[in-house]
Design a protein around this nucleic acid. Sequence first.
DNA 1: CTCGTTGCTACATTTAATGTAGCGATACGC
DNA 2: GCGTATCGCTACATTAAATGTAGCAACGAG
Lengths: 108, 108
Amino acid sequence: MPKQVPATRPGVRGSRSGRPIMALLDLLGRRWTLRIVWELREGALTSRALRTACDEASPTILQTRLTELREAGFIELTEDGYGLTALGRELFQTFTPLNRFAERWSKR
Amino acid sequence: MPKQVPATRPGVRGSRSGRPIMALLDLLGRRWTLRIVWELREGALTSRALRTACDEASPTILQTRLTELREAGFIELTEDGYGLTALGRELFQTFTPLNRFAERWSKR
DNA sequence: CTCGTTGCTACATTTAATGTAGCGATACGC
DNA sequence: GCGTATCGCTACATTAAATGTAGCAACGAG
C-alpha cells in the first residue's frame, strides 16, 4: 500500500488533498531540492557547476531533482546552464527571510 | 566516503560549510519535516493526531523527525502534545508566504 | 581528429522510509 | 482491584530512494 504516492501531478505527493501547499511542501521537502534553488539564486549554473556547488551530490539525484523542478516550472535549461525561471525567483524570494533566520538560529 | 554526513551539529548535514542556511536547508529538506512544522502551525497536536494529519506517515520516521526538530529547538513536547516553540513559530512565519505562492503556482 | 566539456544515464551499493506490530506508562470507568 | 483506551515511542522486516562510480552521445575549440 503506497503511502504518499497517488499524486495528481506526476511525481508530486500530497496533491490529493487538493491543497497546493502540500504538493509544494512535498516537492521542496526532497533531498537537495531546496539546496538547488538556493544555489541558483544568483544566476544560472551548468549542471556540473551545480553539482560542485551542491557538495558533489550524485548526478543521478541531481538530474532527478532538476527534472522535477523543471516540470514544476521553477527552473529551466538555458544556454548558460540551469537557471531559475521567473516563477523560480519568486519561490526563492518567499524563503529569503530564511537566511536571516538561519543566522539567528545558529546562535541559539 | 560519506557525503553530507560530517555535521558539526549531530544529525544535521551541511554544517561544515559554516553557513547556517545550509544546515537549515538540510534539516528542512528531509521528508515530512516541513509538513510537520506546517501541521503544528495552529497549535499543539498529540503524536497520534500529528500522524493522522500527516497522512498516516510511519511512526518511525515521524519520531525521528520530531526528535530532530526538538534538538533544533523548533518544537517541544508539552502537556498538550507537540507544539512549536517561539523559535518554531518564527520559522513557520518565514515561509508563510509560501502558502500564497503555492496557490498561484497551482494555477500555472 | 583529438581533447575537453556539456547534459544525462546505467547500475550496483548503501542508506532512508515505510508498514505493522507492540512495548511501558498513564488515566479513565467499573 | 480489572479492563480498556490512550499516550509517546520502539523493533524489525520490507520497500523505496539516494549514493558513488563509470561512462555515454553531442557539441565546440584547437
